[in-house]
Amino acid sequence: MYYIKLYFSLISAILRSQMQYRTSFIMQVIGNFIVTFVDFIAIMFIFGKFTDIKGWTLWEVGLLYGMTSVSFSVAEMVTRGFDLFSRMIRLGEFDRILLRPSGIFLQLMTSDFDLRKIGRVSQALLVLIISCQKIGIGFEPLKLTFLAVAIVNGMVFYMAIIIAGATICFWSVESTELPNMFTYGGVEATSYPLPIYRRWFRNILVFIVPLVFVNYFPALFILDKVDPLGLPYFVRFLFPLASIMLMIPAIRFWNYGVKHYQSTGS
């Protein structure tokens, strides 16, 4: 309870400071909205020339896109502190965090909160809502609940990748883009149905970094689609396992990194 209170009071302080430069803040929200909105406009243009992709229509793809984008953009918004982590290590600021009488994890979570990303979140939500409405799943409480659970699950999934990615900074001072492959790249790859990819690439998305559990399998259930890959029906419900199985090692890895941390001394 204490931690939850602490979290919200620290976050609200950050938000107040971000609101100080109002014009800049509003422009950044608009910028974030546009940068991702063009992604979906491009998809709409594509579907102006094609009717479907492997049997998936525009709004079904919109559902995939909306789910993965909402999950990722919220995860990105709340884990901004981990995103800035490499700089913290490089400047030796992490030492200061170790000295404070509070959990390291909590401090990282509250070191920054990227409210400007609300532009991206709202864009993703907009696509999701329109897609649901076009497909006609707006008034099915069961499916909507299922959708909400899947999206929260997706947030945990992306947060795990971001945390694991930030942990690499303990060993490599040079900041690396590699986690982007499974965050930004993950959003891109999961915006389309799994069967469009070749087998080797599908295997990566199912077994190595199981991104398909973020949206593809839950979407199969929501849309009552037949899985062309012929996986058993219960696979559609396995998604919470995927994110738990990713989050636990991510946190373990993080703790291991903290334990073996050596300051840059600068």
Binding site: Y21, F25, M27, G31, V38, I46
Partner: peptide
């Protein structure tokens, strides 16, 4: 503006689409 990030984002977003980077303009 002092903080150019917003303007940069708007310019970049428009550019990504209108430059035909994501999709040929014939689409």
């Amino acid at each position: 503006l002092l903080d150019a990030r917003g303007f940069s984002g708007i310019m970049m977003g428009a550019g990504l689409l209108l430059s035909g980077f994501m999709l040929p303009v014939s689409f």
